[in-house]
Simulated assay, not measured.
Amino acid sequence: MLIGTLLLGLLADFRYSADLVWCGRPSAILWEDQLFASVSGRIDGPVGGLFRGGFVPERRGVPSPLSHSTQMVAHRTNLSKLELRDGRLLFFSTGHRFFYIVPLAELPGLEDSDFGTLIARARGYRNSSALLDYYGGELTSLLFPDHRKPDVFPPPFEDLVSLNPSELELGYRVGRYVNRARSDLQIAGEKTVRMFHAHDGKLFVSIEKDYLRAWHYDKRNKEIKNPPSAPDRQLRTGQLPAGFTGYFAVYTVGGRDYMVTSDGKVYMATLKGKSEMDVKVLWDDPKQKVAGVVQDQDNNAVYGWGYAGKDGSSDRFYLKFDPKPAPVRYALTVSLWRNITDAYLESYECARAFRKNKNK
């Protein structure tokens, strides 16, 4: 009897968290007639990926999307980040050290199929993974570059506490810090990113060289001469509100940066003076946490969505990211698939809802 009760309790816990478990915390982009959705998957489950399909809101149902391999492995959190700018896609799992900025023209080579492998090989890559690695970057180069002093000296841990650490100890401390770093990226220019880095109650925002492998090595792994030089950092700093301790993804609309956290809150950061950022809480409703984000590129708008009803219900809400967000209720028009592609389905239904309301 006791075992049966425990099993029922575990099943109840699973039902309560099923949506977030399967869906992760996805990031999506509505671009012309295409919807892209990136998901990091379950923290202890399947690897996430990128899903893409046509968006026809007037048509009933949600067509099955194409799956693309992106190696999005949930690390410290399953909060995903996706951005499209100047014909390139950035995808990143916050809390993870690796990120990718891939030209849209190369996206067919990442299709999770034999066709995708053939396309990758036809374009000079060994396989889809090699294509992805070619456009990959790593946070260590951004947080601890060779050409300048880092904003944060890697803190001590366990018995590694030296004030003047050896190269070996420093390497251990850097590696440990990067594996736990709270940071996010945006595409800034052809070879640069805008980095957000939070540490010990302080926010650092700067322009950095993206250090993509593509700028340093060719497809045959030969080193390229004269790699990109470091840009003007344009460093800004700001104090984070109390309680801002988790991982985050940043979306910029109308000159304001909206920071969506792994616990479902939204903060707004704005420029202050010549070198500061002002950060404040924008959305903190424990009953309506933001679970995912959809960017409407055609209308220069960003929306967060979340669960609004009891567990298992189809009730959802979305809110447009602006200085005075107001939740709007909607309901799913289709049943969840109960697998990782629910990230795409949820994003599609949110986009269908805000486009319907916008066109009224």
Rank of each mutant, 00 (worst) to 15 (best):
D133T: 07
D86Q: 15
S93M: 07
M72K: 11
M72T: 11
P103M: 02
A74Y: 05
D133C: 03
S141M: 12
Y100G: 02
S80K: 02
P103F: 00
Q71W: 03
S93L: 06
G124M: 00
Y100P: 01
P103V: 03
R123I: 01
A130H: 15
R123F: 06
G116L: 10
G116Y: 08
Q71L: 13
R97L: 05
F144K: 11
P108K: 11
V102C: 00
A120L: 10
R126D: 13
R88W: 03
Y135H: 01
F115A: 13
L84T: 05
L110G: 11
L110D: 05
L110M: 05
Q71K: 15
L132A: 01
R123G: 08
S128K: 12
G87Q: 10
P108G: 05
P108M: 13
A120F: 04
I101N: 00
R126M: 11
E111C: 03
F98V: 14
H96M: 02
R85Q: 10
G116K: 04
G109F: 03
D114R: 15
Y100F: 07
L89M: 14
R126V: 10
D133P: 01
F91W: 14
L143E: 04
R123Q: 11
E111S: 08
E106H: 01
L104M: 10
F115G: 06
L132S: 04
Q71I: 08
R121F: 06
L107Y: 01
Y135T: 00
S80V: 05
P108L: 07
N127H: 02
Y135R: 01
F115M: 09
A105H: 07
D114W: 12
R121C: 05
S129I: 15
F92E: 04
D112E: 14
Y125H: 07
I101D: 01
Y100D: 09
E138Q: 12
L142G: 08
F91N: 09
D86C: 04
L79P: 15
V102S: 01
I101R: 01
S113N: 12
L107T: 00
A130V: 10
G109L: 09
R76G: 14
S129E: 15
P108A: 04
L110N: 07
G109P: 03
L142N: 10
T70M: 06
D86I: 13
L104K: 03
L132C: 01
S128V: 07
G124Y: 00
V102P: 00
L79T: 12
T140D: 14
A122H: 15
R126E: 14
Y100R: 09
L110H: 04
G116C: 07
H75F: 13
S129G: 12
L107K: 02
R85H: 14
L131I: 02
F99S: 05
S113L: 08
Y100V: 06
G116M: 06
Y134T: 00
Y125D: 05
G109D: 09
F92L: 02
S128G: 12
T117W: 04
L143V: 07
Q71A: 07
D86S: 14
S80Y: 08
S141V: 10
A74K: 06
L90S: 06
S141T: 10
N127V: 02
A105N: 05
S129F: 14
G95K: 13
